[in-house]
Structures are given as structure tokens and as C-alpha cells.
Design a binder for these strands. Structure first.
Length: 158
DNA sequence: AAGTACGTCAACCGCGATATA
DNA sequence: TTATATCGCGGTTGACGTACT
């Protein structure tokens, strides 16, 4: 018995959200909440979207008090520290950063912090530009470095 | 100016966990 | 207890913009 799909993937719209779709979803959730059922929500409000897609859009973009980009040095350190101690539990890490989403934190880690920790700068291979000084983030592990080493080893192996 | 490779980020996919009938 | 539906999460992808040759 296979797992039932959450929606008819052939008929729902995919890809970037239009401003009108955002507005419909935002207005509905603001007034009614999610009613605990994301799967049924798009049908209720006439959006031709998968329920999971609606949930993701709300959580990562439409929720009030969301902040995008502009990670501070303090947030950098916290992310690195938490990653060193608990690994890629992005939702847990994001919970420690008010206004940040797990997707944001994950993207930030994968595109900036991980690269920085591994010693890569922009265009490291093709252009061989001089790298900025690497921050010694791993030394900041609250666990004393053991977990940090493990996390780094995992990263380097993968 | 055109072409190419890389960086960023929104969104999708698939799976495990949990709830419910 | 089992089957099914839904939630929530982490990993991955792909479009687009930018830096560079």
C-alpha cells in the first residue's frame, strides 16, 4: 500500500507564487488561521496549489515578523555553534533566531557559512581570488570542540 | 557585447512522525 | 492493530542575477 499523494500533482500549479496568490493566502490565514488543515486550505480559498506548497509559502515568506537576509555576526555565530552541537536540525536552529525560518537558515548555511568554514571564497577555483580571512567559527563550539570537529568531519566527508 | 561559470534563494520532493478512524 | 491522511522536516533542484573572461 503506497503512500497517497497529498494532492494531484498534475493539476496543481507549481513554481513561483504570484502576488495575487500571496494576497489570497495571507488574507485567509490572517482571518481564519490554517484551521489545522493545509491540504484542504487551497481548495477552500480557490488556490490551485498543493497544500504543502501553501504551508511552505506561509511559513517561509508570508508569516508576520519574518526577516530575510542581513544575518548579523551574532546570528552567524549562533548558527555555527548550534550546527556544531546538534547538526542540521534547521528548525531547531531557526527557533533560536527570532524572525528566521528554517529554510532561510539552511540556505544561509549552505551558501555562505559552509563555504566559509571549508575555506572557499567566491570563485575559488576558476578565478583563484585572494580569500578574506577565515573566521575561526569552529572554535566557538559550546561543547568544547568535539561536536564541532564531528560536524566538520561529516561535512568534509559528504 | 557575448558567453560562461558561479552564487543565491524560493520552491519542490520524499520520507518519517504523528493523528485519526 | 492497521490503514490512511496530514504535518513537519531536511535535502535538493532550478531559475535568475552577477562576476568575470
Amino acid at each position: 500500500m503506497g503512500r497517497a499523494p497529498c494532492c494531484d500533482k498534475a493539476s496543481v500549479k507549481k513554481g513561483p507564487w504570484a502576488a495575487e496568490e500571496d494576497a489570497v493566502l495571507r488574507a485567509y490565514v490572517a482571518e481564519h488561521g490554517t484551521a489545522g488543515n493545509w491540504i484542504a486550505l487551497p481548495r477552500k480559498i480557490g488556490l490551485n496549489r498543493c497544500g504543502k506548497s501553501c504551508r511552505l509559502r506561509w511559513l517561509n515568506y508570508l508569516r508576520p515578523n519574518i526577516r530575510h537576509g542581513g544575518f548579523t555576526g551574532e546570528e552567524d555565530r549562533l548558527i555555527c555553534s548550534l550546527y556544531a552541537s546538534i547538526g542540521s536540525r534547521w528548525s531547531t536552529i531557526a527557533a533560536q533566531l527570532p524572525g528566521r525560518t528554517d529554510n532561510d537558515v539552511k540556505n544561509y548555511w549552505n551558501t555562505k557559512l559552509k563555504r566559509r568554514l571549508l575555506g572557499g571564497g567566491r570563485r575559488p577555483i576558476r578565478y583563484a581570488l585572494p580569500l578574506p580571512q577565515q573566521p575561526r567559527l569552529l572554535l566557538m563550539s559550546p561543547t568544547g570542540g568535539g561536536a564541532a570537529s564531528t560536524a566538520l568531519e561529516r561535512m568534509q566527508l559528504s
